[in-house]
């Protein structure tokens, strides 16, 4: 999911460049323009590195996790073409214990590396806003706030997809209600952290004594876009509190509905941060209301399309559950497991 989402996210800066065929200019490489280098003091360049690294490491980790399972699929595949493709992708994996030993070590290393990457990628993205001077963007709370928001919306989106996937592919015995309930708990925690961040932003806007900052926040809550702000607050902070009730955490339709609400709320968070802050900046003469053109709506819908196409293709051709991992935990090969009961 990360990989497909980053692919979609990567499209927007590309479109934004205006000359997407020159996108390679963002990389520092010796060239005949001087050598004219990229500006290492710009958060936009940090973004190139942060998102590039995040994407690469996620891709490697994803592929490494799939290798033993692709091998398993290869050994069962019928038909020459299928067998050929899975053979290539499985890299000749045969389950040698020497390989397993190194494999586990590799997975540990990659897990250790990708955890700080999650923090860094969202922090660096938030620097794009935080290092600017626009009221409502120029705040030091942004890095932790974006990280909490990312975990929050990430869990909600995974929950949405997981509920559909486990139903569609009959994985209810592997991805159980207990797993989903645990995810709901993470959503309450991170949702409340996001709520705390909203409150802190308001407090600092008042406490800073900066009138532009103060205006930006009063405008958020009571201005032209108050509807967007309050949609965001209710979707991200108020509705997820329903997960305190155990019956809600164990009710799949309720979970699904709430996960969609959180997704909507987090979309509105971006809308609130970007649109409201830009609509009324320092010069009243440049104040304006924003409404999307139909091309902008089209790119939004298109990015959804790209994401779901990739996701559905993935679910169709590759194992969605890490089989080798599940086998080692579920007491595989013992009679008890058949029929789906857990021990």
């Amino acid at each position: 999911m990360t990989i497909f989402a980053v692919m979609c996210a990567g499209l927007f800066p590309l479109i934004h460049m205006g000359r997407p065929w020159l996108a390679f200019f963002v990389f520092p490489y010796p060239n005949q323009r001087g050598s004219l280098w990229v500006n290492f003091r710009s958060p936009l360049l940090w973004d190139v590195f942060a998102i590039g690294t995040y994407f690469t490491i996620s891709l490697v980790f994803w592929y490494v996790g799939l290798i033993p399972d692709i091998a398993s699929v290869r050994d069962r595949a019928k038909g020459k073409i299928r067998k050929f493709i899975y053979s290539l992708l499985s890299l000749g994996w045969d389950g040698s214990n020497r390989t397993w030993l190194r494999y586990e070590s590799l997975c540990l290393v990659l897990a250790g590396l990708s955890t700080p990457l999650v923090l860094s990628v969202h922090s660096v993205v938030s620097f794009d806003f935080a290092t600017s001077v626009i009221p409502g963007w120029h705040t030091t709370i942004f890095p932790p706030y974006f990280v909490a928001g990312a975990i929050f919306s990430g869990f909600a989106m995974v929950l949405t997809l997981l509920i559909i996937t486990r139903k569609a592919l009959n994985l209810e015995h592997y991805i159980t209600l207990n797993h989903l309930e645990a995810m709901c708990k993470v959503i309450i925690l991170t949702g409340s952290m996001v709520g705390l961040a909203y409150g802190t932003e308001f407090f600092i806007a008042w406490y800073s004594g900066n009138e532009y900052e103060r205006f930006a926040f009063i405008n958020r809550a009571t201005g032209n876009y108050a509807w967007a702000y309050w949609t965001m607050v209710s979707c991200n902070v108020i509705f997820p509190q329903l997960f305190w009730i155990k019956a809600v955490r164990r009710n799949i339709p309720a979970m699904f509905a709430l996960s969609i609400i959180v997704n909507i709320g987090m979309w509105f968070e971006r809308f609130v941060i970007i649109t409201i802050s830009l609509s009324k900046d320092f010069l009243p003469s440049s104040w304006a209301n924003y409404s999307p053109t139909f091309i902008e709506v089209g790119t939004l819908i298109g990015s959804f399309g790209l994401f779901f196409t990739c996701f559905i293709l993935f679910a169709r051709v590759l194992p969605v559950v890490a089989m080798a991992e599940v086998k080692s935990v579920l007491g595989f090969g013992r009679k008890k497991v058949q029929g789906g009961a857990h021990d």
Binding site: F40, L45, R98, R102, L106, V109, L110, S114, L117
Partner: peptide, 23 residues
């Protein structure tokens, strides 16, 4: 930030390649 990112990038990708080579 760039120092951090390249540290992680080199660490992850080269370890993966070393794993493939060693196995």
């Amino acid at each position: 930030p760039v120092c951090f990112e390249l540290t992680v990038l080199f660490g992850g990708v080269l370890t993966f390649l070393a794993f493939l080579a060693r196995c």
